[in-house]
Design a protein around this nucleic acid. Sequence first.
DNA 1: ATGTAGGACCTTTTT
DNA 2: GGTCCTACAT
Length: 713
Amino acid sequence: MSADINRLSDNKEISPVDLFYESFEKLNEYQKAAVLDYRKALLVNAHVGSGKTTVLIHKILYLHFIKKLPLQSMVVLTFTNKAAQEIKDRLKQLGSTIKNDDMKFFGTFHSVCRTLLSSSLTVENLGYTKEFSIADGDEILELYDRIMIDNNLSIKYKNKIKKRMDKVKSGETLYGNMKNDDDINELMKLLKQEKIRCNIMDFDDLIDYSIELLPISQFKPQWIIIDEFQDCDSRQLKMVELLAGNTGNIFAVGDPNQVIYSWRGGGGEVFEDFKVKHNASEISLPINYRSTTTILNAARSFLKNGVNLSGVRESGTPITIKKHHNRFNEAVYLCQRIKSLNSMGTAYKDIAVFYRKQKDSEVFAEVFDKHDIPFEVSSRKTLRDTPALYWALRLLKAAVNNRDKSSIVFLLGTGRYGVGISQKKVKDIAQKFFKADADTCGIELLSKIKGFREWCGNHTTSLEETASQIYDYFDIAMYLAPTSITFEEDRRIVMKLLNDITEYSVANNKDIFEVIGDYANSSSLYGNQILKEVSNNIHQDEDTVKLMTLHASKGLEFDYVFISGVNLGNIPIISKGEEGEKEEQRLFFVGITRARDSLEISYHVKPDDFGVYGVPSPYLRMIPEELIESEDFGSRASSLGQLRREIKDNIDKKSESSKANCPADNVKHKVLVVHDKYGQGEVISEDENNITVEFPVYGDKTFTKMFCPLKYI
DNA sequence: ATGTAGGACCTTTTT
DNA sequence: GGTCCTACAT
């Protein structure tokens, strides 16, 4: 589909209106109906792979080019920067006249809130200024620390403080039967004051304060368009309602079958609630273009009523279910399997391996490395993982928002970079600095920070030189440890950041101080994007196998998908109640439906993790037998009720016999072992992590004990 | 100050 | 099962 769009946009002679119609004609009747619908509140129930984003984009183009509404009168809300970026990119491809500035209110919930709070909403009412900055989770953690020290608070379970604070916020308590209370409620109170004093907001504040201020604002967009609507939590829903007011229209696209993040607040019955509350109509997009009929049929067994999803593709290959000893063995198998797929013409980048937990990636990464399989693990990187860049951004943050005490403390402290003043002294200095007269205590960096706004106003040289002048102004080199081996790279990264900023300032003819403010203040919101732009991101489209958690797979698709460790206790993790179990099912559904052509599922006989049982997940039995090609993996359940009973029985049975056979216990007394592939061998040496075994044919092999590929005899 | 028994929790993650 | 941490003991 995107190939079509590319081709069309190359044709410069066609006007955006014609281009729209040409592209619109290619939609199916359901998609067309959704685009043309003009009712006040519409829910689009977009099934997997049904062209959800395409519909959303055509909706915007239709409103703009056909209904002649300015883009500034629309708010488009997403949950991730990636989704927002994709929408903007595709809009620009189809509508050549569209400029970035027109899409001011297109973005994540948080970034749109930031735009509103720093332009049209009266944050001054709350004690903030429009230059407020945004603190990410880690910065809030710093803040907790500082408040605890400054106020002598006693807080228990400090390294779970984030989780505890989240609980307190929602009125619950972690560690419910803690004998003696601590000062956590006090910390909560002080936190709010301190954030205002420092002129910083956390992610939740952006939404909460927007909700607080929207009712008294003049901002009245005509259309509110929401992507992944099923992930809205109650506050985000509230925000949508306030944005729409009495006059705005709401167009929400989503799929209730893909709610996998309800544990972080959203999900639940948003669709139903919204329908009732706003008397919204519902349209569904039932046609899946992505997967083979076999895969879709399997997926359908996990849908509520499973009927309203149809495919257009051929039946394809059966789903494979494989039994492995443990994850290590599977990894070894996968290497050989992937190599063979690759030699038969499947590109590495069209193959993905999904697992349940982040930690699971370690085994795969290690084994894939050894077997020279090119791969990439999708791990979340933050700005902090590039310390020099992070330090520079904190500097800019402080320079723009002088009230940002956290950043000042960070910059002066004894971290990897920075001035290197001891914690106690920093506290004194910061205290003086934040008194009315802003004493810089003879610290060069502080006076530079304080004088930065003035310096920006006075400096008149060409903008091309501005980047290096800023670098010199703060004497950044000095703080980046010029003698360290990473210095050259650090300097390059920081210069690249400053260059990007000045370039942007030139291109958009905007004041440099303002642009720096935008950049620094939003670095928490677009952390990953900045990281990508600044570091050499070569891996983007590389031909590598992609490894990720099931959660991370949402929204992606691959020709060949492996789902690893579909065991009872892993997928599903045996969770609290019925709701939790349903979510586990949806997670598996999401995983299955990522596959275009082929799907291979595995389970482990001896899983490595606590709480995971060595039996296949009951979900495997919900897949119709005729779709599967596998070794036998047990009886099948004919109803959900029966399935639940079976899960329960399995758990009971397993917990009784769990102590019985744990081969690792006998390690020290025996010398002879058996390996699945190498056969019988003798232990030569071992330490706490590794064990070396001599095999008659294969010679010496060293194993990591964690993977436990050996059986003792 | 230092030692240890017993409790709670353990996953998924964007902004 | 392993880890972290509190609460109470010396």
